[in-house]
Design a protein around this nucleic acid. Structure first.
Lengths: 199, 199
DNA sequence: GTCTATACTACGATAGAC
DNA sequence: GTCTATCGTAGTATAGAC
């Protein structure tokens, strides 16, 4: 619900109905609406972090790590459709309702920071080793988020544009290939591939 | 206000205060909240369409048209900061509150469709002429939206990631260069450039 | 742990005086 | 064209019975 309509677009009545409870019963489980929201977001980001861990810590080349990381990210976004929208909202929304002092909120921000840092580390490693051309790391990160998170958050508009569902196995497979191809062309150093041939 | 907090996050009281009016006076100028919203969005998208028109109708090569189009898009997003968020919301939000029957709503959807079609036409032309490799046109469109609209919609998160403001002249210039470089690498046909050297 | 009942506030919207 | 007053609804949250 939060993914589709945002924090302000969801009423507790609706949440309670969805859970098969009365409105008031929610307050027995959550301190308030904000707590419920941060709990949801934290769970989703936690799952994402788990999924992306292996790509970071593997003993492979930067190119291979990057591809693994991106594939894992896309898989996770594709398997849990609300994730992308929730992520995008977390980044784009002006979260006036979130108190930075709140430890739950701070925890979520750290989760996001760790995710970003992981990707940036791979990128920097690849640039240092000569595998990637010397792109601006933050710019490349933004572009990557756009190519992955935005795509799977684009809902009806995205389906109209793509001419079909976003989350079908075939659509996900194609998106993955297109993004990886785009990154290979976009990042690869002009001179020569430092790695084994990609095909 | 709508860009920052979304349709549901904005109250008419706040809007009225911002305009220096009483709440009720708004209803003299707009049929209701939805009408106010679509009016705002339509104005913003109309300006965007005007800005991107010249790139579409110029007599240049596909590569040059694409670069012109992207530069114009980034300039427009950069000069009017709420635009990107408003666009992204229009695409990502589950607009339950918008009635597809409403002629204003239909008009906005046509604006968006025209914008997308313009870009797709350039891309197809470039693929046909051999200037670009044969990417999936809808996928490339999504990636482009991600690289441009998302970036300028990313607010505080984006500023944290980039390590500075998103909308300063220097930041915009760098973003433009990075995106164009990425597109050149990402789209260019592997064999040879069909156009004059890009540098 | 869930319920009913309720408090209080804000919302979008309308009526009608000026 | 703007105002005050008001309507009806829905919002978050609490109190207290069961």
């Amino acid at each position: 619900m939060f993914a589709r309509r945002g924090f302000n677009g969801v009423g507790l009545r609706e949440v309670a109905d969805g859970a098969g409870l009365g409105k008031s019963s929610l307050f027995h489980h959550f301190r308030g609406k904000v707590h419920l929201y941060t709990e949801v977001v934290s769970n989703v980001f936690g799952r994402l972090e788990e999924r992306l861990g292996p790509a970071l810590n593997s003993e492979r080349s930067a190119s291979e790590k990057l591809e693994m990381w991106v594939e894992s990210l896309i898989d996770e976004l594709a398997e849990h459709p609300p994730t992308a929208r929730l992520l995008l909202r977390g980044l784009v929304e002006d979260d006036d309702f979130l108190d930075p002092e709140d430890p739950d909120v701070a925890a979520v921000e750290q989760q996001i920071a760790r995710l970003v840092l992981g990707f940036e580390r791979i990128l920097k490693e690849g640039i240092a080793s000569g595998a990637f051309r010397s792109v601006s790391v933050p710019d490349a990160t933004q572009t990557l988020i756009g190519a992955t998170v935005y795509h799977f958050a684009s809902g009806e508009f995205g389906e109209g544009l793509m001419g079909g569902p976003l989350f079908s196995a075939a659509a996900v497979r194609r998106r993955k290939q297109e993004v990886l191809a785009f990154l290979r062309h976009g990042f690869s150093a002009p001179e020569a591939e430092t790695n084994a041939p990609t095909s």
